[in-house]
Every structure is written in structure tokens, then in C-alpha cells.
């Protein structure tokens, strides 16, 4: 299952490291990554990931990311890729 992870929050050290660590533990593969710091302060990152449902469920990934988000004071969302396709492609 492919999904998009979005991470938004105040820039600080170790965001990519910590998100990747969580994903790697759950055997979620990162296929694409794009990141920018807006106005020199707000960190935004998009990741296209592939979840191997034999290794872990969507819910596990969502919960692990949400816990990390709380600890690091970031907004971390994960959504199936289809929603973006549906809304922005004719």
C-alpha cells in the first residue's frame, strides 16, 4: 500500500532521522522524499512510502508516527496516496 507522509512543524535537528528510524523499524520503505524549510523556520517534508502489509498494518504506522509527532511537537500525517490523486487529477 502506498501512502504519503507529511511532516510540518518548527525546524529542529533530527526530524528526518527520527521519522526514518520509526519507518525503518516498521519495515516501511521510503520511495521518494521532498523537504523544504519555509520562511527559514517552518519545516515541511513529504514522503512517498510503501507499507508492506505483511510486516505491519497502516494503523501501526499511523500510531507510531503520531506518537513521534507528539514527542517532537510536529504535525505528522499519513494518508493513502489515492486521496491526492482523486482530488487533483482529472
Amino acid at each position: 500500500m502506498k501512502a504519503i507522509i507529511t511532516v510540518i512543524g518548527k525546524d529542529t535537528t533530527g526530524i528526518i532521522y527520527n521519522v526514518s528510524k520509526v519507518l525503518s523499524k516498521l519495515k516501511v520503505n521510503i520511495e521518494d522524499i521532498s523537504q523544504t524549510v519555509m520562511q527559514g523556520e517552518y519545516f515541511t517534508m513529504l514522503m512517498l512510502v510503501k507499507i508492506d502489509e505483511k510486516e505491519c498494518s497502516f494503523k501501526d504506522v499511523k500510531e507510531a508516527l503520531s506518537d513521534l509527532g507528539k514527542n517532537m511537537n510536529l504535525s505528522i500525517q499519513i494518508q493513502k496516496e489515492d486521496i491526492f490523486d482523486a482530488m487533483h487529477k482529472i
Binding site: 504519503i4 507529511t6 515541511t44 513529504l46 496516496e81 486521496i83 491526492f84 490523486d85 482530488m87 487533483h88
Partner: peptide
């Protein structure tokens, strides 16, 4: 996937 589309959603 275009960056701004995702952010918009």
C-alpha cells in the same frame, strides 16, 4: 505528485 497539491489537501 505535485508538492503544492499535497499541501493544499
Amino acid at each position: 505528485m505535485i508538492y503544492k497539491d499535497i499541501i493544499e489537501t
